[in-house]
Amino acid sequence: MSERKLYKKLDLSGSSCAGPIGEVSGVFEELAKGEFIEVVLGDQATKRDIMAWAKRVGAMVEEEAPEGGKPRLLIGRA
């Protein structure tokens, strides 16, 4: 996804009421085709949940090198 346009980066490693999937789902709806968001997550379980969610909604996902030991994903709209 390196040639695509980054919309924003989200640090979802902390607790939030909407939860990581809720936060991502809200922003994902705002993405235009070819845009992506970068998300940093708290743990591997959340990463798996996000990847399952992405598969269900048809989002593109790429795993990047962890940031500070935390999983990092790029999520885009195809």
Partner: peptide, 13 residues
Amino acid sequence: YPVQGVFGIPNVN
């Protein structure tokens, strides 16, 4: 609810 479950935080959900 827009995501699986009824709330975003696993414990609360």
